[in-house]
């Protein structure tokens, strides 16, 4: 599939030992999956140990988008981790059907995710 369009819009903010990465896109699907993973690689960099991926603006995800999130998480290696926050209904459904909700810690929103950061 041709990869069209510009970079995927990710907004980063560090709070203590956590890097918040907000996905400013309505969909993570087959069209942007590869660019999403590349953008995540840059956004995660060698920053804090913990990443919280804020998915509150993402209204739709498909299996390719899910694979890209898993791939990004695996880039972190064993000493860093990725948690998820703000899953909208369809995104939540895809995580539950594929049982990926058992792999990630998932929080209702970034506030809850940050409050649980000390765990």
């Amino acid at each position: 599939m041709p990869q069209k369009g510009g970079p995927v819009d990710l907004h980063c903010e560090d709070q203590g030992d956590t890097r918040l990465i907000r996905v400013a896109a309505p969909r993570i699907d087959a069209v942007i999956a590869i660019r999403f993973k590349d953008a995540m690689r840059l956004a995660m960099g060698d920053g804090p140990e913990r990443i919280v991926l804020d998915l509150a603006e993402v209204e739709f995800i498909d299996s390719s988008g899910l694979g890209a999130i898993v791939a990004a998480m695996k880039l972190l290696g064993p000493d860093r981790r990725m948690d998820l926050a703000g899953l909208t209904p369809i995104v939540d459904k895809v995580f539950r059907l594929t049982r990926m909700d058992t792999v990630f810690s998932i929080y209702p929103d970034i506030g809850t995710a940050l409050a649980s950061g000390a765990a």
Partner: peptide
């Protein structure tokens, strides 16, 4: 069913399951 317990998590193959 996929093995989701190890470090080598699947990055694809979810489509037909869904």
């Amino acid at each position: 069913p996929m093995d989701l317990t190890g470090p080598d998590l699947p990055e694809g193959g979810f489509g037909w399951g869904l």
